[in-house]
Design a protein around this nucleic acid. Structure first.
Lengths: 102, 102
DNA sequence: GCTTACCGTAAGCAATGGCTTACGAAATGA
DNA sequence: TCATTTCGTAAGCCATTGCTTACGGTAAGC
C-alpha cells in the first residue's frame, strides 16, 4: 500500500539520479547537489519526496544531514512487480486453456 | 535504458489501475473505461503512454483493440531494482568495514 | 448502403510539479 | 560572541500533464 508513492517519487529523472547516487553511498545534501545540474534547494525538495515515500532516511552529523537509501522499501517495490507478473502469467495460462478447448 | 519511461508511466494512479486490470486479463478499451471513473478517451491516452513505455501490446479483434501487458518489461523493471539493491548492499558493507577499522 | 459500435486524436482547460532566488534556523570554529 | 557552513522552507514562475468534449475513421450487422 506504499508503492503508490514510490512510483511517483522515482518517476522524475533528477530524483532517480539522486536515489542512485545514494544507493552507491550515503551522502550529505551538498555532496549530491555538487554532482547535479540543479540547485541545492532543488535537491532538498527531491529528498523530501523520497523521504515521504520512505525510500531514504536521514542521519544528522554536525551541520550536515547524511541521506541513505532504505533497502527494505525496494523489496516492497519488487513484491508489487512480482505480483503483477504472476497475475499476468495466470491470465496467460487462462487464455491458453480457453484456446485449447477449441 | 528503458525503465526511464516505465516509472513515469506507472506513476499515475489511474494508469496503474489500467495496468493492473490488464495484468488480470487482456481487455478492450471500453471494457477498461467501464470500470473506471474516467472517460474512454482518457483511457486511450493512458494506454498510449503505457504502450510507448513498452508495458502493453495491442491486438485487433473486429472493431475492438485488445490490450495486454508485456511481461518481459516487468522483468526489466525488476532488474533495475535488483541492481540498486545490490549497490546499496555494497555501500552498506563498505560503511561497516570503515567502521570496523576504527 | 446505412447504421451502430468501438476507437484514436485534436483542442482546450485546470491542476500539478520542478526549478530558482531569498530567507531563516542550527551547529561548528575562531 | 561572531562569522561560516549546511540545510530546510516559502514564494513565484513556467512547463508538463491528466481530463473533458468534439470529431473522423474503420469494422460488423441489418
Amino acid at each position: 500500500m506504499a508503492y503508490e508513492m514510490m512510483f511517483s517519487a522515482l518517476a522524475d529523472p533528477t530524483r532517480r539520479a539522486v536515489f542512485e547516487m545514494l544507493a552507491d553511498n550515503p551522502s550529505p545534501v551538498c555532496g549530491i547537489a555538487a554532482r547535479l545540474p540543479v540547485s541545492r534547494p532543488a535537491v532538498s525538495q527531491h529528498l523530501r519526496v523520497l523521504s515521504d515515500a520512505g525510500l531514504v532516511s536521514v542521519r544528522a552529523e554536525g551541520t550536515r544531514r547524511i541521506y541513505s537509501v532504505e533497502r527494505d522499501r525496494l523489496e516492497e517495490l519488487r513484491r508489487w512487480i512480482d505480483g503483477l507478473w504472476s497475475d499476468a502469467l495466470g491470465a496467460f495460462a487462462e487464455a491458453a486453456e480457453r484456446e485449447a478447448k477449441k
